[in-house]
Structure formats: structure tokens, C-alpha cells
């Protein structure tokens, strides 16, 4: 598989959220606005790329039996770094994302890429895969956050688009599920048209 293909497949064809249904908890939990979705996506991308790099470097050193616990330790270390850095430099975003920052550890996307890709490929490919998957995840979160922000609050990235009250339900929990359902359906249609 070419490097470009590894990079771009995560956007529509193998989008982690819309197609693989990985990392759904943060995808639903933090996307009350496009900004939060973007922040969460970039934080996850960082963890994903860094853990992919480390896992692909140490893959031949770790015995097969303890590989999953070792991956978890690597991932958890980078999550702790992200969490401390974000708390220091972006306290507002840190408060908005809250519990979902430590929960990047159990984001099945990060673990899934370490196990399925980084532990079998060289470091360069692992970086590309991490970037692609991370940005695909970011794209999905920003789209869902943007959709919910526009419909729920009439704004995008905090800029007002229309005045008055939006549909509050889209800012609250049910809107996350319904919005994601329709985005997956749209992505299915896109996938079909690009394949034909």
C-alpha cells in the first residue's frame, strides 16, 4: 500500500468514527462545539502519532505475551503528557474536555492502531498511519461538533451565524447520537459514490 493511500484512506473510506466505529465515547461526549471537537481530535492525533512511533520502534523488543500491557503503558504516558500540557497552556479547553482527556487511554482507536498497524510496520509508515487516522478522527469530531453547534447554538467556532435560540436538543446528549447517525449515513453515501 502506498504512503499516500495509507494517509488518505482514513478520511472517508476507513474513517475511524464513521466507518470503523472506534473512539465513539469522545466523539459523542465532547462535540458540543466545533472547537471542542477540534481540540479533542488534535490531542488524540498527538497521542496516536507518538504511541505509533514508540510502538513501532520497540515492537521487536517486547515479548508477544505482554505486548498489550506494554502498549497501554506507552499510550498512558503520552496521555498524561497531553493532559499536563493542556492543563497548563489551555485551561479552558482542559475544563471543557474534562474526563475525556484521561479517557484517551481507553480510546480503542489508539490501541487499535498500535496493535493492528504500528506493531507490524516500520516507523515511517506508522507515523503516516497515525497522522491519517488522527486527522480522520479530528475531521469527524469537528464535523459533528460543527453540526451540533450550528443547529444547537446558531454558531460555528463561537462565531454567530443566526440569532435567536437554536434547537437545544442538539447541544444536549440526544443530539450527539442523532447527529452522528445522520453523519454516518451521509458518509456511507459518499463512500459508495467515490467507489463507483
Amino acid at each position: 500500500m502506498g504512503n499516500l493511500k495509507i494517509f488518505t484512506r482514513a478520511f472517508i473510506k476507513e474513517n475511524p468514527v464513521f466507518i470503523l466505529l472506534l473512539g465513539l465515547c469522545p466523539a459523542l461526549g465532547v462535540t458540543t462545539s466545533a472547537g471542542n471537537g477540534l481540540g479533542m481530535g488534535l490531542a488524540t492525533t498527538f497521542v496516536l502519532v507518538m504511541s505509533n512511533i514508540v510502538v513501532s520502534i520497540i515492537k521487536s523488543q517486547i515479548p508477544n505475551k505482554v505486548r498489550i500491557p506494554s502498549f497501554i503503558v506507552v499510550i498512558a504516558s503520552f496521555v498524561t503528557i497531553v493532559s499536563l500540557v493542556m492543563e497548563a497552556f489551555m485551561p479552558a479547553l482542559f475544563d471543557a474536555l474534562g474526563l475525556f482527556i484521561p479517557l484517551i487511554v481507553v480510546n480503542c482507536l489508539v490501541m487499535g492502531r498500535a496493535e493492528a498497524f504500528a506493531s507490524k510496520n516500520n516507523t515511517f509508515k506508522a507515523i503516516i498511519d497515525g497522522m491519517g487516522m488522527g486527522l480522520g478522527f479530528t475531521l469527524a469530531l469537528t464535523l459533528l461538533g460543527g453540526l451540533r453547534e450550528i443547529l444547537g447554538a446558531g454558531a460555528i467556532f463561537g462565531l454567530t451565524i443566526f440569532e435567536g435560540d437554536g434547537m437545544l436538543v442538539f447541544v444536549l446528549a440526544p443530539g450527539a447520537f442523532i447527529g452522528l447517525g445522520y453523519l454516518i449515513a451521509i458518509n456511507n453515501i459518499l463512500k459508495k459514490t467515490t467507489e463507483n
Binding site: L21, V169, L172, A173, P174, G175, A176, F177, I178, L180, G181, Y182, I184, A185, N188, I189, K192
Partner: peptide, 23 residues
């Protein structure tokens, strides 16, 4: 259900309606 909504999308919409009930 409409063809493109089958599977995961329909499940998410149902989950949304359940969340609405729990609200």
C-alpha cells in the same frame, strides 16, 4: 429503514431517542 440508514446510523438515531427519554 432507508438503505443508507441501515445498521449503525439507524441504531444511533434510536439511541438518540432513548437519550431523549432519559432526559
Amino acid at each position: 429503514v432507508p438503505k443508507d440508514m441501515r445498521g449503525a446510523p439507524a441504531a444511533f438515531v434510536v439511541a438518540g431517542i432513548m437519550a431523549l427519554a432519559f432526559m
